[in-house]
Each structure stands twice: as structure tokens, then as C-alpha cells.
Design a protein around this nucleic acid. Structure first.
Length: 477
RNA sequence: GCAGGGGUGGUCGAGUGGUUAAUGGCACCGGGCUGUAAACCCGGCAGGCUAACGCCUUACGUAGGUUCGAAUCCUACCCCCUGCACCA
């Protein structure tokens, strides 16, 4: 590729490149000397759950790798170790060394789906921040003025709105900027929200007589709702560890309009190719549905494999186009006997309450063995050894299997466990689970979990046991 | 500590004594339509009982109180935000 072509490739999808002449100069220098550019991307150590939004920047990092440069994936463990004492920012809890290391491993496993491990350096900013010392830190702070820091939009805003800004928040841009100095970064990548911090890096590098880094800002990807940025807390994200059929469905649920944005930021298609597809769609030559399928397959191929993508498509067509039942259906054991349908739905976690089960029934959303059931038709007999296929809505299926014992089992994992407490009055263990935002409480007779009564932290103890595989099911009365 | 503002259902946000299980938006769920889990339209959205009309139980930060009746009034307490003060 010529330098011009490289520039073009690196600019794709970016909001800003500061400054383009600098980038050109650096690319030329690298081509001349054979020394790869050092391209930095910083990540918060608290959220190792990467979703497609993060991959917009990671893809850009990969673009640099493809051109032979060095990707530096920097984990901001220093700030993670401090935590956020102001208490209002729950997203920055204090982490232990072990947690940070564990998160780093999780990060690696995820980013290497996109990045080439051989050309990626993983680093931690505690490496230089720990040895900086408070004198060094104060000296560092002397290199920028208060006014410079307060320029940041979000500080400005909070100042005028009289919302608080904790002092340490003013310090974070400084730390991030200093990271660039410590790494002698040539380029820093980040979302548009990182622009200010990355520019601080340029200033500090200049102060340190380094060549200022090129700053490339990438847009914040809209989530599946098409409005807010993709984020776990908005529930509008597609995680890169999600199963292929799930990813497929989520991509298909994206609006036709948003699809183009995803094409631009989540695929390697060239801008002009995307423009052509778009024109063809507007002209009615291409069907948006088919293009969305293609998009979904491309994305799945990145994180799973092309064959997984094919399988996901087949599954989707089977369930939604031909309204057949899916390939794999979860099965759950349920007590045999006479059931009222709403109760059975609750037992199978297809409804969160009897009332909801009833509503689903009223609205015609419930099928048993493929047959639609109505409110007056609520009785179901499930014999031991017999299996019924339950369906709620278009895409939720469950086989319930009748068992003789009068025990229902609820599957648990540490993600769904919300809290555990021992109630001395009733002598039961109260366990709270979170299923899709809804809490459910179960009382467990203490004699079944005697050892738990004496544990210091029930939640911790319980969680550890779940993780260790001690309880994959819990008895529910 | 002082002064002011505020705490309502998953979320945002109305409601300031009486059909209020609480308007509305968003999210979510079901149905219809379709080329898709797009868009659009319709319906639902505390829990429990009932075949059903319907009934009951909880719920507006917490605990009491006033009242025939309270999310709405009173008292105390807790928490959050802003400013000031204290920490010398």
C-alpha cells in the first residue's frame, strides 16, 4: 500500500485524526526506517466484558497491526487500584491486584479474537505510576494548568451546572496523558469521549521533548436500540462472547437504518462498497433483510467462525421464517402431575409470575406441543418420564420433563446470584437470584446448608461454591 | 453542623387528601403485518385466588401519627445533591 492508501485505510470510520499531517509523517518515517509505530489503546480494568462497541476501536488497532505496527493494549490498573473514593461512581470500584490480573487475562482472551498476539504488547500503567512517587506526581501536575484541564467539556458542564467534580477526577487525564509519555506512543486510539485525555498526552509528550502522538477518535457505536451508545448498563449491547445464534438474532433486530452504521464500523468493507450497497437498497435492488443477514454473518465470523455463522443463519430461518422449532432446546425437570399452565410456565422460567403466565396465555403467546393454548384451556397433565414442548412467543422454547420426585430444581450460576442471607427467625437461608432484571427469592432450609451458617460472608462463600461447581442446582420448594 | 433542593413502579418523570395498582415517555413482553427479533399497528406490563364477573394482599426512602380515607398533611429518622462552615 502506498502511504496515501494507508492513510485512507486508517481514516475509515474515524471522527477525527489529529493531526493528519503528523500521521503521514510518522507513516513515512516508519516506512523509511523500518521501525513500527507504537499504537496505544487504553482500557479500563473494571469491565473485561467486551462488546461490539469496544471493537470499533480495537478494529482500528488491528488496522495498524496489518500495516506492520505495534499495538499496545494498556490496562489502566493504576486507577483501578485507587478506586473512586467519591462513592458516586460505582463503575470504578477498587480492585485487588488479583482481580486486575484476572481481568487482564479475560481481556487477552477477547481481544486476541481480533488482534494478532505476536504484534500486541500488553502493558499496565502501574508499572510506571507506582514508581513515580508523590514528588514525581506533583512535578507531573505542574506541567499543566488548571485552566487547561478545566477545558474539558464535561468539566465545564458540571461546573456551570454546579455539579461536583472530585479533585482526583482532574488528575485522571494527567495520568492517561503520562501513559503516552511512558510508552513513547506514536498514536493513541480511543472513543470520542477520550479526545481530551488523549490531547493531554500530546501536550505532555511535547513537554518531555517527544514527538506528540497522533490522536484518532472513533465514534461511540450506537447500541441495538439505535439511540444510546452501546453499553452493558443500557442492555443494548452485543457481547463478543455471546453465542452465535444470539448474536445473529441481535444483529437482525437492529433497525434497517442502523445496519449501515454497523457496516461502516464493524466490517472491513470499504466505504465505497458500503455506499454502493446502500444505493442498491434504496433503488430496491437489494433487500435490507438479506444485507442484514450478511452483516450478521460477517460479525459472527470474526468472533466465532464462518461455519458458526452459517449454522446461526440456518437456525434463524428455521425458527422465524419457517416457524419450526430450533435445533437445540433446553430441557428442565419438573414435578409430574396436574399443572395449571401459568404455573408450569413459571416452573420453567418462561414466565416470572403466575400473573404473567396468565397474561401470556390471554394474548395467545403460549403453545404446548405446538398447539396454541387459551385461557380456558389451562390444564396440563405431565406424567413422569413424559416430555412436553412449551413455547412462549416466537422464540422461547423449553422442554419440560416430568419427574416423580416432588422437587423442582433451579439452575444457578454466580452471575444470577444476587445475594444470600441467613434468617435466624425462620432458620432458612434466603437466596436472591436475578433473572433478567427480576429478583426471585428462595428460602432454603438451613439444615441443608449447615456449614453456611458460620461463614463470614455468606454471599462470598456461596459464590465460591457455585464457581467451584458445588451447587449447579438448588432445591426450590 | 447550618441553609436550600430532593428521594414515586426496570428507568425517566407526572401526581400535593378521595374511583390512584398510581397519567405519560422509554425499556421490556405478547399479538398482527412483513422481507427480519427492522419499521408500523394493536394489546400487556405488582403479586396471589377464580372458568369467569370479580375478590384479596402488598406498594410511592424508613417508622409512627392525624383522618371515614394519605404517595399527597404532621412528627422523628435515614439517604442523596448543592453551597457554607467545622476539622487550626
Amino acid at each position: 500500500m502506498t502511504i496515501d492508501e494507508q492513510l485512507d485505510y486508517l481514516r475509515k470510520g474515524a471522527v477525527e485524526v489529529i493531526r493528519e499531517e503528523d500521521l503521514r509523517a510518522k507513516l513515512e518515517r516508519s516506512a523509511r526506517t523500518g521501525v513500527p509505530l507504537r499504537v496505544k489503546y487504553g482500557a479500563d480494568p473494571t469491565a473485561p466484558d467486551i462488546h461490539l462497541g469496544h471493537t470499533v476501536v480495537i478494529r482500528k488497532l488491528r488496522a495498524f497491526q496489518e500495516l506492520g505496527h505495534t499495538a499496545i493494549f494498556l490496562i489502566g490498573d493504576f486507577t483501578g487500584l485507587i478506586g473512586d473514593p467519591s462513592g458516586k461512581n460505582a463503575t470504578r470500584p477498587q480492585l485487588t491486584r488479583e482481580e486486575i490480573n484476572a481481568n487482564a487475562e479475560t481481556y487477552k482472551a477477547q481481544i486476541f479474537k481480533l488482534l494478532d498476539p505476536a504484534k500486541t504488547v500488553i502493558d499496565f500503567n502501574s508499572r510506571w505510576m507506582d514508581t513515580l512517587g508523590s514528588d514525581g506526581f506533583v512535578r507531573l501536575a505542574s506541567r499543566v494548568t488548571v485552566k487547561q484541564i478545566l477545558e474539558r467539556d464535561d468539566f465545564q458542564k458540571r461546573l456551570t451546572e454546579e455539579r461536583p467534580i472530585a479533585l482526583h477526577e482532574l488528575l485522571y487525564p494527567l495520568v492517561q496523558g503520562y501513559d503516552s509519555v511512558a510508552l513513547t506512543a506514536d498514536v493513541e486510539l480511543g472513543g470520542t469521549d477520550q479526545k481530551f485525555n488523549m490531547l493531554v498526552g500530546r501536550n505532555l509528550q511535547r513537554e518531555s521533548e517527544q514527538q506528540p502522538q497522533v490522536v484518532i477518535t472513533m465514534p461511540l457505536l450506537e447500541g441495538t436500540d439505535g439511540v444510546q451508545k452501546m453499553s452493558k448498563s443500557y442492555g443494548n449491547y452485543i457481547g463478543i462472547n455471546e453465542a452465535a445464534p444470539e448474536m445473529f438474532g441481535k444483529v437482525m433486530s437492529v433497525s434497517d437504518e442502523l445496519m449501515w452504521r454497523y457496516y461502516e464500523l464493524l466490517t472491513d468493507l470499504r466505504t465505497d462498497e458500503i455506499a454502493r450497497l446502500r444505493a442498491a437498497t434504496q433503488a430496491g435492488e437489494r433487500n435490507p433483510r438479506d444485507l442484514k443477514v450478511e452483516l450478521a454473518k460477517r460479525i459472527i465470523a470474526d468472533f466465532h467462525s464462518p461455519s458458526d455463522a452459517e449454522a446461526a443463519e440456518a437456525e434463524f430461518n428455521r425458527v422465524f421464517k419457517r416457524k419450526e422449532i430450533p435445533d437445540e432446546i433446553e430441557e428442565r425437570a419438573v414435578a409430574e402431575g396436574e399443572w395449571k399452565l401459568p404455573r408450569l410456565l413459571v416452573a420453567g422460567s418462561l414466565a416470572l409470575s403466575v400473573a404473567e403466565g396468565r397474561r401470556l396465555l390471554e394474548q395467545g403467546g403460549v403453545r404446548v406441543n405446538g398447539e396454541q393454548r387459551r385461557v380456558k384451556d389451562v390444564d396440563v397433565t405431565l406424567r413422569a418420564g413424559e416430555t412436553l414442548l412449551l413455547q412462549v412467543g416466537k422464540r422461547r422454547f423449553l422442554r419440560v420433563h416430568g419427574v416423580a420426585e416432588n422437587i423442582l430444581r433451579e439452575q444457578v450460576d454466580s452471575d444470577s446470584l444476587a445475594s444470600v442471607g441467613y434468617n435466624p427467625e425462620t432458620q432458612t437461608l434466603e437466596v436472591e437470584f436475578k433473572h433478567g432484571g427480576v429478583y426471585r427469592y428462595y428460602n432454603i432450609p438451613a439444615h441443608e446448608y449447615d456449614e453456611l451458617k458460620n461463614a463470614d460472608s455468606l454471599g462470598h462463600y456461596f459464590n465460591e461454591n457455585i464457581k467451584a461447581g458445588a451447587y449447579s442446582y438448588i432445591r426450590v420448594n
